[in-house]
């Protein structure tokens, strides 16, 4: 009896506010429910069928996928390079703290700061570019650069977190491995690929998994920095879902269908990555 009593409060919380909504969402996605309407009907898969024709949903999916793919490498590499450098130099803990600091900010604070920095007319970033002779751009309003600006902002935001993760991982690699490699005449570059990368693989995979799952939910940066613009160039799935459910006619049924499409995608990715993770850690 005892273990169940210990588990009860947490599981109740979890079941009521996490599991139940998940399943309830599936049910809602089969209805034409709308906020403020007392009654609704089951419409089968009509919401899903409509999604097949919703070009803005397709654009959002494409943007989300683009963001996920394009941001993974910088999110993986920038903190790793920093971690390798920090691991060699001095003042490691001080530097680690400095780089970590942006991660303590909320996405809104990050967005507002960068919005002001990147202001196309009166922002400092463009000003310094112009003084360097580089033509100024409206980074966030240019369809060519808007998503990249969001990626850069995100990299700035999360680098500190992954830096700490990497540093911890690097410290777990025994020093004598490198020394032995050096005795065998391996240079820094070779020991990076033959020692660091393989031993860091679980950490690298953790970073990728965490980042990819987070990427599918991109919303805050877009809400503050571009509002999904210019046009629909940075509109994401979650933003489309949010607006469908809470701004335009409060179409709960349609939004729930979007949520489940998103969930299905994340599920497939998670399973794939989990396979990958398991396959490689058992060496």
């Amino acid at each position: 009896m005892t273990p169940y009593l210990f588990l009860a409060p947490g599981l109740l919380l979890f079941a009521a506010f996490r599991l139940y909504p998940l399943l309830e969402g599936l049910r809602l996605s089969l209805t034409n429910a709308r906020l403020g309407r007392a009654s609704y009907q089951y419409v089968g898969l009509a919401n899903y069928a409509r999604l097949a024709d919703d070009t803005r949903f397709h654009v959002s999916l494409g943007n989300t996928a683009f963001y996920t793919v394009a941001s993974t490498l910088p999110v993986l590499a920038v903190p790793l390079l920093l971690a390798l450098a920090l691991n060699r130099g001095r003042l490691r803990n001080v530097l680690r703290s400095l780089f970590f600091f942006p991660f303590t900010l909320s996405v809104v604070t990050v967005g507002l700061a960068w919005l002001w920095l990147l202001d196309p007319v009166v922002g400092p970033f463009n000003y310094y570019l112009r003084t360097l002779g580089v033509p100024a751009r409206s980074w966030l309003a240019d369809p060519q650069t808007a998503m990249w600006a969001i990626i850069a902002t995100t990299v700035w935001w999360v680098t500190g977190y992954y830096l700490v993760v990497y540093l911890a991982g690097l410290q777990d690699i025994p020093r004598d491995l490198y020394e032995a490699a050096a005795l065998d005449g391996a240079g820094g570059w070779r020991s990076f690929w033959t020692i660091t990368v393989p031993l860091l693989r679980p950490v690298l995979l953790f970073v990728v998994v965490t980042h990819v799952i987070g990427s599918f939910q991109l919303f805050g940066q877009v809400f503050v920095l571009t509002g999904g613009g210019p046009g629909d160039a940075t509109r994401t799935v979650v933003q489309h879902l949010y607006e469908t459910a809470f701004q335009n006619f409060f179409q709960f049924g349609a939004a729930s269908a979007m949520a489940w499409v998103l969930f299905a995608i994340v599920l497939v990715f998670s399973v794939l990555q989990f396979r990958l993770l398991r396959g490689h850690t058992e060496f």
Binding site: R18, F216, V238, L241, A245, F252, A255, A259, F263
Partner: peptide, 16 residues
């Protein structure tokens, strides 16, 4: 459940 994106439960959670 760590894999469930928060956005997925947004609408039903609101209803609840």
């Amino acid at each position: 459940s760590l894999m469930i994106p928060n956005a997925v439960v947004l609408v039903p959670l609101y209803v609840l």
